[in-house]
Simulated assay, not measured.
Amino acid sequence: MNQVRLGIIGVGNMGTQHARYLQKGGIEGAILTAVLDNSEQRTEELQSILHKDIQVFNYEDEFFESGLVDAVLIATPHYDHSYLAIKAFEHGLHVLCEKPAGVYTKQVREMNEAAEKSGKVFSMMYNQRTNPLYQKVRDLIQTGELGEIRRINWLITNWYRSQSYYDSGGWRATWAGEGGGVLINQCPHQLDLWQWLTGMMPTRMRAFCQFGKYRDIEVENDVTAYAEYENGATAVFITTTCEAPGTNRLEITGDRGKVVVEDGNLHFWRLRVPETEFNREYKGGFGEPECWKVEIPIIGKETSHAGITQNFVDAILKNTPLLAPGEEGIKGLSLSNAMQLSTWLDDWVEFPLNEELYYKYLQEKIANSKVKKEAYNISLNVEGTY
């Protein structure tokens, strides 16, 4: 194979964006050959914005059995991701899936198992992993430059969303429509980066989610979470869609210093000797390790969605290592699910997450959702809408 024939499933906002750069030849070694969108009303519109040689399908079976695609890019509502990915693997297709991996880890685990069984390339659209700033932070941590991680603080409150935003779609901010709020819609990239940068998952978490705070919605839109790690490190994650102006500040402290990412800049304070060593040997009472502020060069540019797609295609054609392996999508989702479950239980939750218990509570939320799944043909176990 010297070219990947790519099909997009779900041609809404994100699917259309992907189609644009693919049609312009923005991905070397890839060509857009088909799209699948189950809205027959959109067929004529799609045919007008897509090249004439791109086939538009409204029915899954016709799309999957067409023989026109080698790989799919899934850009549908959250609940459909796992189901469609599994179906693609069963048809021998490679899969690139938009974030989040799914709504609940139980379905995502099934997707991961199908991916492993298929032997096909599987990637997640975690485009923030292409940001050289975050890549440098990860490098400082993974190479030991920051030392052993002790504390992680992420304050991300610049997700402002007004009531009119939520009112723009009946499925928005509902348990049946989206499966959550700020954690499942706005924050999947940060939840992914949180564990990707450090290479660590917590041992337990206590979270406080507020549902419909200052907004007429049923899902979480204000969250404060506290996590603990096996090595004694702790983390605090705070997010909301109700504050203006907002803040996006990530601070990670290690045994050898501290990094802060804010306003698109990386700041690094390095201790001359590790804190552990200083504490062990210093005998002067008051005092602290000598600290240097170090300028860290950030080389490269963020390639975002197209960068992940190019990496996905290169993995198929050249066996290039994936920047965002699909199987890792469950990690950030585990953090999200844990925050909600901790709130519902009003207690700590342990990792690995109790997937069955989370699923049980989620089903109760869906059953009482303002938007019934039948009204939007949203599926939890079988087929969905896109």
Rank of each mutant, 00 (worst) to 15 (best):
residue 61 D to E: 15
residue 32 L to G: 07
residue 68 L to Y: 08
residue 61 D to F: 02
residue 47 Q to S: 13
residue 67 G to L: 06
residue 65 E to Y: 00
residue 65 E to V: 00
residue 53 D to R: 09
residue 64 F to A: 02
residue 61 D to P: 00
residue 20 R to W: 05
residue 29 G to K: 03
residue 66 S to P: 10
residue 35 V to A: 10
residue 52 K to M: 01
residue 46 L to Q: 04
residue 32 L to N: 06
residue 63 F to D: 03
residue 60 E to R: 12
residue 64 F to K: 01
residue 50 L to D: 07
residue 42 R to I: 05
residue 23 Q to P: 04
residue 24 K to W: 00
residue 26 G to L: 12
residue 54 I to Q: 01
residue 40 E to C: 07
residue 55 Q to R: 15
residue 36 L to F: 11
residue 53 D to G: 03
residue 45 E to K: 15
residue 30 A to N: 05
residue 19 A to I: 04
residue 54 I to S: 02
residue 58 N to I: 12
residue 42 R to Q: 12
residue 46 L to S: 04
residue 38 N to H: 08
residue 33 T to S: 14
residue 30 A to W: 09
residue 47 Q to G: 14
residue 44 E to N: 08
residue 40 E to G: 13
residue 42 R to K: 15
residue 45 E to R: 14
residue 42 R to A: 14
residue 59 Y to G: 02
residue 61 D to T: 06
residue 51 H to R: 11
residue 65 E to M: 05
residue 20 R to V: 13
residue 57 F to G: 00
residue 40 E to T: 14
residue 29 G to E: 10
residue 47 Q to M: 12
residue 45 E to S: 14
residue 42 R to P: 05
residue 24 K to C: 05
residue 48 S to L: 05
residue 40 E to Y: 06
residue 28 E to G: 09
residue 68 L to A: 09
residue 57 F to L: 05
residue 37 D to P: 11
residue 33 T to H: 04
